[in-house]
Design a protein around this nucleic acid. Structure first.
Lengths: 169, 169
DNA sequence: CTAATTTATTTTAAGCTTAAAATAATTGCT
DNA sequence: AGCAATTATTTTAAGCTTAAAATAAATTAG
């Protein structure tokens, strides 16, 4: 690549020019920018149009997919947030009447969380709007762009998981 | 595209099959998963190896690029966080000796934030490690993958900005 | 020059988030 | 059965985050 006046054999070069990873760093920062931008806008619209926070919306989205409800542990894994975080979030959504806690019939430690009827109705109204917002935010991407982005992010997800899991063992 | 047994003229179809945007939604959720996964791991390693939080690291990263320091407003725009958030973050980093506040010589409302010598040294040590982590997390992507991902995310960023700006006017 | 507006920052109140420690119930082992 | 380890959840302490209101200084308009 960069032929210089001073010749360097491969090994010397490896020592003096350890790989730099600025490209990967720029890629990561760009992913982060996209996420922050879109998430901030979604958060803002949820608050303005439905007076709901994103974490509450996310929790209800999980419950909407589970007609029989979920335990806090299930929610914790799916949402990738801590147990302690969920305790408070669930408390607030119970207080606002969107969800209910039921004692698990099989495990006295656990409680099962499910949407109330009105909670589900309200969620579905919001979710329909939300889907439009996302479509609008990604509106300039072609179908091909989206497919390719999906594929590359799938690869990224696996790569990250490998790096995270691999290091623990 | 999809010729069906039941013929529908274009208008009927538009009414009965309003566009669904599940694909865009799945794409958004995948971006979010990647970000959460990687960000969580970076956060964990920063805490374990350097006893520092990600917001503090991010703030120092901005300052490291600005040898003459930055005002809170500059930081707020660059980091895409609220002013009020920065007040507290800056206070804590001043308390730990990583940064200093200086009164702006030209504007009595503003203060200029800059890294201390030891803060800069500490940041650079962390930043070098951080760059390796990111390279490792993205390790399974080829150079071509990364270039393509960068391009598509660039397009996504512009698309989102257009959708956000366009709606305000 | 003065009043109105804008800009820079802080404060406040509320909620989100985490890690670590504590409780309590269940499961596995012998 | 009885003890150890695991699992489900809550509590605690600390910090992050935001929106909205407040304060104060600078800029603009007339």
């Amino acid at each position: 690549m960069d032929d210089q006046a001073i010749p360097l054999d491969a090994e010397t070069k490896a020592v003096e020019m350890p790989e730099d990873h600025r490209e990967e760093l720029r890629l990561w920062l760009r992913i982060l920018t996209c996420t922050t931008l879109i998430e901030g806008e979604v958060r803002r619209r949820l608050r303005e149009q439905f007076d709901v926070t994103l974490p509450r919306f996310d929790l209800m989205a999980q419950l909407d997919k589970a007609p029989d409800g979920m335990t806090l542990s299930d929610l914790s894994k799916r949402m990738m947030v801590s147990n302690g975080n969920l305790t408070g979030l669930v408390d607030r959504l119970v207080a606002s009447g969107h969800i209910v806690r039921t004692a698990s019939p099989t495990d006295r430690r656990a409680s099962v969380i499910s949407l109330t009827e009105s909670g589900r109705a309200e969620f579905r109204t919001m979710a329909a709007e939300h889907e439009h917002w996302i479509a609008e935010l990604f509106g300039d991407l072609t179908e091909k762009d989206r497919g390719e982005l999906m594929r590359l992010l799938g690869k990224t997800k696996l790569s990250a998981r490998r790096a995270i899991q691999g290091e623990g063992q």
